[in-house]
Amino acid sequence: MRPTDPLAAEEHDTPAEVDATFRTLRRVAVGHVAVFASVVIAVPLLATALDWWSQGRLIGGMSPMFAMTAFGLYVFFFVVCLAAATLSTAVEERMLGGPGHEGDPQDPLSPNDGAPRP
């Protein structure tokens, strides 16, 4: 932001690093979308392949397909998204910026030592 900001200089990404992160994240995203799409497609498609899927009776009177569309898919979406978000964040943390040493105030070599304290 402002060139005089002492913190801004410490947080800087080079184009090569960003490009690497971008490609890794793209793999993460494409992988998760593939899982997402195959499950969403499988749920209605299984009904034509497997009678048990749409006509079987699980606990009480729901068919596996009914249970899947009524609860399972939402849980699945949530899990896929949580996994993707966690993985993407972890990838970004490891591939951009330094290792998390700024959180350690006892560290005598920490770059934060030079930072002005209010």
């Binding site: 801004a8 947080e11 990404d13 184009p15 960003v18 490009d19 951009l96 910026g97």
Partner: peptide, 19 residues
């Protein structure tokens, strides 16, 4: 690209907030 996929601004924000 650096602005779109880089996290420098994010880290800066977090650091400022922490400070």
């Amino acid at each position: 690209w650096v602005r779109l996929h880089g996290t420098a601004a994010d880290r800066h924000t977090v650091k400022l907030a922490r400070l």
